[in-house]
Amino acid sequence: MTTAALDSASAAAAPGRHRVTELSELLTQRTTGKPFVDAAKMRTRNVNVYYGEKQAIFDVGLDIGRNQVIAMIGPSGCGKSTFLRALNRMNDTVVGCRVTGEFLLDDEDIYAPKMDPVALRARVGMVFQKPNPFPKSIYDNVAYGAKLHGLASRRIELDEVVEGSLRKAGLWEEVKDRLVQPGTGLSGGQQQRLCIARAIAINPEVILMDEPCSALDPIATARVEELIAELAENYTIAIVTHSMQQAARVSHRTAYFHLGKLIEVNDTQMVFTSPQHELTEAYITGRFG
């Protein structure tokens, strides 16, 4: 990689006038690496997302591998969260947001008119940046989705769902004696694991995580990262993160977004050891972002 290319890439953070053309040239290139895989759980093609007049995502195509963790990284405002929220149609709830392109979940078009976004979100769950337990008891937080979707017909079944989900989220031992206490009384890291337990209680096929550790301290973060690795055995996970170390630790594949474009996708190890694209290299070596 030449010094000139690096300079032009780092100029993305504060583009000088004479370097804008170089950056836009870099951005017009097709996605580098391997955006598509065999046996994908979700496939997206030609995705564009608009907020009103402003376009946030430009022509993105990306596959999410079955029972894999894919990390989406990139500087703030690069569209990675927007793309994530398009995967379970959470963007539908944002006024003025418009999504085009092809989204397949197991060959089913999730933006098809006959697809019910409410039912879709039960299959593609989501964990948010800030832990958001409902102001209810720990038990009711986990039981919320199961009750909603009729996953348990008797109290004893519901108890099993709650215990199983809390166990999978590694929270059971910590809360089993205080299930009736409010979920908001837990520590930040416990709250986030409670939210993960809540999401897996309805048996989603895919779990989307939007910077799930950004509000947590390092120890709680490590605990959640362990959990993600365990969950990947049974679930397909897409995680947006600002921490490149986290992406390197938990994911199988990494996608690098820049200004609404998907720049490079590859196996995580490849991305962090030998990035193919100048922008990716500039980002992971800390030149900007």
Binding site: M90, F134, P135
Partner: peptide
Amino acid sequence: VPRSLRDGSLALGATRSETVKKVIIPA
């Protein structure tokens, strides 16, 4: 009521009225 609670409920596959009934009104 914070938007995060609405999002949390919607992301679990609740409809708007279920969200209102079960999360927003109690909160």
